[in-house]
Design a binder for these strands. Structure first.
Ligand code: MN
Ligand code: MN
Ligand code: ZN
Ligand code: ZN
Lengths: 138, 138
DNA sequence: AATATTTTGCAACAAAGTTGCATTTGTGTA
DNA sequence: TACACAAATGCAACTTTGTTGCAAAATATT
């Protein structure tokens, strides 16, 4: 088991349970983002579908995972790298979704550029999602 | 009925049907983007749920509507303004989703800035979605 | 070890999306 | 205008996805 797992859970004041450990482990192994369906597939009958929903929700609230918007009705989740805390995310990096293999990447080193919106729009979050062909699928 | 409706359909080589006219009209009246559910709600029993699915899909394929990614598993659709054609979209403007009223706006005059991705990522599309509080909800 | 708290699985349900097929509607042509 | 062909629609049946309440199990606290 990845050494960071227990730490991460405790720092967020979450009790350390099997499902949380395993789901977190899955995200640490895979470097890419995962949709609910990916986790469900990958974990077989290890735990209930409902538990996955609740775990993902908890992790997002606690700042362990962030969501990545998509145009295919299937939100992806990925590990927060920065110091995200309960209700306060700072994942302002670009995401890339490959049309070929379906992988979603966090491009941690590519920052979302500032944009000048018309007066009156108060921005709380900015998401930039690129899609196309990834390195592996060229 | 809005004068552009028949034109738009014919230009895309689509037969002019009641549902297509009414769904298109809805998008022309409302300036904002609409989710499937919005259309369903707004049209009552005028046409079947399945017809809405199929119409939206057709309109996207034909370049009449474009999709807007979201983090809440509910893709929004909005009219293409530019010369989008079958299978070729050019809606490279920023979108704004209001957390308060839920409205999604096409900010037609705010262009998505170019970003420099790591070598090897071939970008086909760039989506920038801002969220926060809109003008009306301040 | 005993107790209090939290999480989980299950069941039942609601909502969202898909597919095949008969019927209806629209289009082009005679 | 009427006809024939093609396309779109509605319906039914179904699958998938997401939600909720509650008892049982697991975890944390003392
Ligand atoms: Mn990310
Ligand atoms: Mn738009
Ligand atoms: Zn790929
Ligand atoms: Zn608003």
């Amino acid at each position: 088991m990845h050494p960071r797992i227990i730490d991460t859970l405790k720092r967020s004041q979450l009790s350390v349970t099997d499902s949380r450990k395993k789901i977190l482990e899955l995200f640490l192994q895979r470097k890419a983002a995962l949709a609910h369906a990916d986790i469900e597939q990958h974990s077989g009958d290890e735990f209930d579908r409902v538990t996955i929903y609740r775990t993902l929700q908890t992790f997002v609230e606690k700042g362990i995972l962030h969501t990545i918007p998509s145009a295919d009705n299937s939100v992806r989740y990925a590990l927060c790298k920065d110091a995200c805390t309960e209700g306060h995310h700072h994942d302002n990096h670009v995401h890339f979704m490959c049309d070929v293999c379906g992988t979603t990447y966090c491009l941690d080193h590519v920052t979302v550029p500032a944009v000048q919106l018309p007066a009156g729009y108060q921005v709380h979050q900015l998401d930039l999602v690129a899609s196309g062909t990834c390195i592996k699928c060229q």
